[in-house]
Design a protein around this nucleic acid. Structure first.
Length: 227
DNA sequence: CCAGACGTTGTT
DNA sequence: GTCTGG
DNA sequence: CCAGACGTTGTT
DNA sequence: GTCTGG
């Protein structure tokens, strides 16, 4: 599903990895996280207007539809289905005009074990390098007039690597496709596809990741399968 | 995504 | 179960 | 309970 | 996700 992500590097590191120009120094104030959840702030990449270069900025995970108006902020959508993002009411304008990238080092998926509970796995790239998830962003105006920039992560059917864990995975945008995803192209539909299993890795991690009280590099430590 | 709260009525 | 907070 | 909708301005 | 309609 993608409800927990890792974004532990500095803005400078992500900028270098994504070949962006030097990021705003203020972004360094954002705490890095090994256990990031909806409701928290993350670095995202946006391109405002064609011809402008993509830049890193801060945004809160949990898409607040502009139609939300005075509706509760609880209408915060952490994910958007790639299959319906073109037409789906709350997302289609954001898909058309406000796509973004979420640079991550890995993400977590929980495998349901029936009555036995669930088992967390980390997922990343085999080479350990950061990669980018497809996102949609929106400015939402709160009741007191304050503006909040929010985003959702686009998900798609799981590839072979992840099918055994969960039926959906985040939409990963490969380096050669990032510019198009950020561009003002109306409907880059061919990018709405599964990332192949090849080049990706998954491994069992400790249930310590369940609680947001825990946050540190040890959350990514591979754990031997029980039994 | 997961963890944790969930009540202030009216007598099981 | 549903909702909120992180 | 499930199915289906969820914005209409002018692109932040 | 939340809400409405059936």
């Amino acid at each position: 599903m993608c409800g927990r992500i890792v974004q532990y590097r500095s803005p400078e590191d992500y900028a270098a990895a994504l070949r962006l120009s030097e990021p705003d120094p203020g972004l360094s104030l954002r705490p890095a996280t090994f256990n990031g959840a909806p409701g928290q702030d993350f670095l995202i990449v946006r391109q405002e207007g064609e011809g402008n270069e993509p830049v890193l900025c801060i945004s809160q995970w949990g898409f607040a539809p502009d139609i939300a108006g005075d509706r509760k902020m609880s209408a915060r959508l952490a994910t958007a289905h790639a299959e319906t993002v073109v037409t789906e009411g709350s997302f289609c304008a954001a898909y058309r005009y406000r796509r973004c990238l979420v640079p991550v080092d890995s993400f977590y998926e929980w495998k349901k074990l029936g009555p036995m509970g669930k088992q967390p796995h980390a997922v990343g790239m085999e080479d350990g390098r950061p990669f980018t998830l497809a996102g949609l962003w929106e400015n939402w105006r709160g009741p007191e007039g304050a503006w909040l920039r929010t985003f959702a992560i686009v998900t798609i059917t799981s590839n072979k690597l992840l099918a055994g864990i969960n039926d959906r995975m985040p939409l990963i945008i490969d380096p050669q496709d990032r510019a198009r995803w950020l561009s003002d192209e109306g409907h880059p539909g061919d990018l709405l596809r599964q990332h192949p299993s090849e080049g990706m890795a998954r491994w069992l991690v400790s249930p310590e990741v369940n609680s947001l009280r825990n946050n540190g590099p040890s959350l990514l430590a591979p754990m031997a399968a029980a039994g």
